[in-house]
């Protein structure tokens, strides 16, 4: 990742709620597809500065830029695997796109005890 990607978006965490948010046209959104895209270093700097204003304003924390590329539908998707996981907003081993409380976190029982007549 030595080379700077062409496109970037700005992300942070919501101060009160904690979840990741992305700077969109009308403020912060949980949907990274709705993020404003910076296409030049100047635009990136401008976008980041905009994010910092809300950091100073105690709306978000931990503002930083994320390298993205456009997917087939023209939506920004992160390039780095960490950021790919972050935009899913849930652990990678949870089924997508369920963001709610999981029904069952793991299989019940280890299978070995169930043949026994008790």
């Amino acid at each position: 990742m030595a080379k700077r990607a062409e496109l970037q978006i700005v992300t942070a965490n919501h101060l009160l709620e904690g979840h990741s948010v992305f700077l969109g046209e009308d403020g912060w959104t949980a949907d990274h597809h709705a993020a404003r895209i910076a296409a030049t270093p100047e635009e990136s700097a401008e976008l980041e500065a905009l994010g910092r204003v809300d950091e100073a304003g105690n709306i978000v924390v931990g503002v930083y830029l994320v390298d993205v590329a456009l997917d087939a539908s023209g939506d920004p998707e992160p390039i780095h695997y960490r950021e790919k996981m972050r935009v899913r907003a849930i652990p990678s081993f949870w089924p997508d796109p369920v963001k709610a409380r999981p029904q069952s976190l793991r299989p019940r029982g280890d299978g070995e005890a169930h043949h026994v007549s008790l």
């Binding site: 904690g18 979840h19 931990g62 972050r86």
Partner: peptide
């Protein structure tokens, strides 16, 4: 000091 972190997806 009260055990509260800010993690990847949440506190």
């Amino acid at each position: 000091m009260n055990g509260l972190y800010l993690q990847l997806h949440a506190y």
